[in-house]
Amino acid sequence: MLRMYRMLVIASFRSRMQHPFNFVFGTLMAAVVNVVEFSLIAVVLSRFGSVQGWSTYEVAYLYGAILLSKTLYRTVASDVHHLEKYLVSGDLDQMLTRPVPVLLALMAQNVTIYVAEFLQSAVMLAISLSVLIGSGQTSWLAVPQTLFVVLCGAIICFAIGLATATAGFWITRIRELQVITEDSARFAAQYPLSLYPKWLRYVLCTAIPVGFANYIPSLYVVRGELGGWILAATALFTAGCLALSMRFWRFGLSRYQSAGS
């Protein structure tokens, strides 16, 4: 299965590189947008010091962790996010006839390596961790813990993305739903959830659980709050999210009716 995925990914990557100019500029511009987005909050924090007790480096940690998680998810499961175009055009029908699981085929289509996002999030995590470790706020154990947090975060982002895509089997157009469940939820998770009112915090930790992708585990990893058990709880929660979304996907696929011509 993994060998097949690798072959499909290489083929997809080769087709992308047929337009190297677009690839290079697209990468550069993605980097510019992400840097600007974070510099907005960095400028504010450098002027006012902190936001509800969270320093610039702690916010950078949250930002870097969720960005890296999202980037991993979008790289490994590229066209799960773009299921709408297959549903609208009817191209999903062809995938159903292939001797490859539909989900695997979707994950391997149009694979994009988000170089800018990878670099930016890794650099942000590296800088914030080195400062926090250097100041004695946390120890070197935070490094492997962060890798674990990012892995769990990527799986949670995938689970949310898959569940949202599955809704497309009933409503076909899912872009607007993705704005809520993926874009705006992830955007909210870039900052400490303690900023938001209780109801929004509950939503971000249950219905759209991006809080577990960075904020909840980082309370322990970078601030030493709660206790080590929260990492085990995060892993358990992540496994639950994945299992639920896969189950929902299989159910949705069994209800698929072609919409194309």
Partner: peptide, 22 residues
Amino acid sequence: AHLLQNIGSLVFGFVYASIWAG
């Protein structure tokens, strides 16, 4: 569809406002 989009926009605005409130 745009009504759903508005919910997303609401959350974005809410986050920005919450940051400044914080």
